[in-house]
Design a protein around this nucleic acid. Structure first.
Lengths: 326, 326
DNA sequence: CTGAAAGCGCTTACAG
DNA sequence: CTGAAAGCGCTTACAG
């Protein structure tokens, strides 16, 4: 059964048949108790800029599942990298290899750097799970995250439904769009919703704001909004509070705003009715599930689903309280 | 430590101090392996009228968690009752008591009958968890389900947001509203949203349809819809496909419809754009979580949260595919 | 190579 | 009453 040594082929088949007949299920408790084998997992996520930052949340879910699996000898070593420095990704990937974990969860944020990391993981036969974004067919054990294109479709549908008239502005708040495939996909889904569903009675405009350190960016936006009869704003990421501030400052009563993620300030604007919808993706659950994938595959030796698209949650003032807990 | 017999108070305190100092955590694996104690749980849910019915779903989640907990000696005995017969609730409650389970999950559908069941459970010291609806302060271990009032608020908000003009019809499809506290709460939340948020520019109407065995009910509804300039329909439960059929039959292009639950036919209407939103509550997850509560409390002897309000999910054509899996 | 013993961290039936 | 042995279902180091 354990493929330990030489057994006559016929005997082996006989035994395996009996195993099947009896529907023998090895007792995982006894097994882990006896083996006393420790399992070390590692995570590599972007470092959150503050304790309020998005990437704290997957880490919370990771910790929760690890705690539950403590009894099975599972432990975690978390690593983070700087989102602005590919080099820090490489450095921390090296560190992970040096502790030689049984499994890894990471966000393949930088494509090139991720690919060389993956090469090394494959060489060493270390299974890995993607979180948040994914590289297709890279040999991953699985992916936990959202379908960004489809999420853009949801935003398009919602904004169109609630807008009696007027045009729409899509706002990217991002330093380097190149590294933000998410945002590109969301915008694409958003635009395509209108292409598929409407005889283009509305105009869509897109703008990128790369620097919010001063308020200079605002003038141009305000200008656009007035000139182009903008009645709806879609912010492609969690920076929707910038749009909320704008709407509040200028008192645009009939402006409808949609953005992403349950950051504290975003929820505040939601509650003030200055933002109508936040599209969310349960990051804690994603962290939890990513570790669970490793556990099922490595410890329980079970098959797991390759893709695990998180639900695209539509959050309003009225149901937000049921999404904040984990 | 186990309070087995007489131990000098001072020794006991000393030992417990050491336990604390070492932060000793008993090994649950070894414990369950050694004790070989079986844990029998029971569920008491309404019997689903067909394999497509709502109450199959919590049962799926129950089964999943039970399977995972098999290793811990946890097993389940499911019971169902007829939603139209309080007597069948009593009968099955009796059966449950006769098998003497360690814990119970049930839907307190009939108030009076549930209360007498609860009395007996308390006498025998059997912990129980409510699912789907709750009786407050009844000594339950916890509650897993939705906040129906708040869910009605969500529906009110959505329908108002997407309706440029026109009035609204609230439809109850139910035999006996008395036993359907859910529906009453949803309606109340729905009405109150308009009371709180609008200077009542729209009229709201409510209708109860208790018999759908023939098509007679339709005439009156169609009449109302035309006469009262109804542009929005809110169906308080999963029977929203009846409204979908109506909209399809009469080709009401600008009618907006909101209802509940991901039944197959409802999803069909959602995909056809005849229903705009389905409000959902992840019934499989509820079943899963209810069993998990019993497990944590009875087997792991951990504290658990009393209330576990499920998220109020807003589902559209665009995100429905991410809610169907479990 | 391979069978059988020791041991994982507990619980419980049992002897004293 | 209470200490110590046997055993839960496995894994692994070891003897033959």
């Amino acid at each position: 059964m354990h493929d330990r040594g030489e057994v006559a082929e016929i005997t082996k088949r006989k035994i395996l048949q009996i195993v099947k007949d009896l529907n023998y299920q090895p007792n995982l408790l006894a097994s882990t108790l006896a083996s006393k084998k420790p399992y070390l997992f590692a995570t590599l996520f972007p470092a959150p800029p503050s304790s309020d930052g998005y990437w704290n949340k997957p880490a919370i879910g990771v910790k929760k599942r690890i705690q539950e699996l403590n009894q099975f000898g599972v432990d975690i070593q978390p690593f983070t990298f700087n989102q602005a420095e590919p080099k820090s990704f490489i450095e921390n990937a090296e560190k992970i290899l040096s502790i030689n974990p049984e499994g890894i969860v990471f966000a393949p944020f930088f494509k090139k750097e991720s690919e060389s990391f993956i090469e090394q993981l494959k060489e060493r036969n270390i299974p890995f799970v993607f979180i948040d974004s994914e590289i297709k067919l890279a040999g991953q054990l699985g992916y936990v995250g959202q379908n960004s294109y489809q999420s853009g479709m949801v935003s398009g549908k919602l904004l169109d439904l609630i807008l009696p008239e007027g045009n729409i502005l899509v706002m990217h708040f991002a330093k380097e769009m190149d590294n933000q495939n998410h945002l590109v996909q969301r915008e694409k889904g958003f635009y395509n919703w209108f292409k598929k569903n409407k005889q283009t009675t509305r105009q869509l405009y897109t703008t990128e704001i790369s620097d919010t350190s001063s308020d200079i960016w605002m003038d141009q936006i305000v200008n656009t909004i007035h000139k182009k009869n903008i009645k709806g704003i879609f912010v492609t990421n969690s920076k929707v509070y910038y749009a909320g501030r704008l709407v509040e400052k200028f008192g645009w009563d009939d402006m409808k705003v949609i953005g992403h993620d349950l950051l504290r300030e975003n929820v505040l604007f939601l509650k003030k009715n200055l933002v109508q919808f936040l599209i969310c993706q349960r990051p804690e659950e994603q962290g939890y599930n990513s570790i669970n994938k490793l556990f099922k595959y490595i410890v329980q030796k079970k098959g797991i689903a390759k893709e695990n698209y998180t639900s695209i949650d539509i959050v309003t003032k009225e149901n937000v309280d049921f999404y904040k807990e984990f």
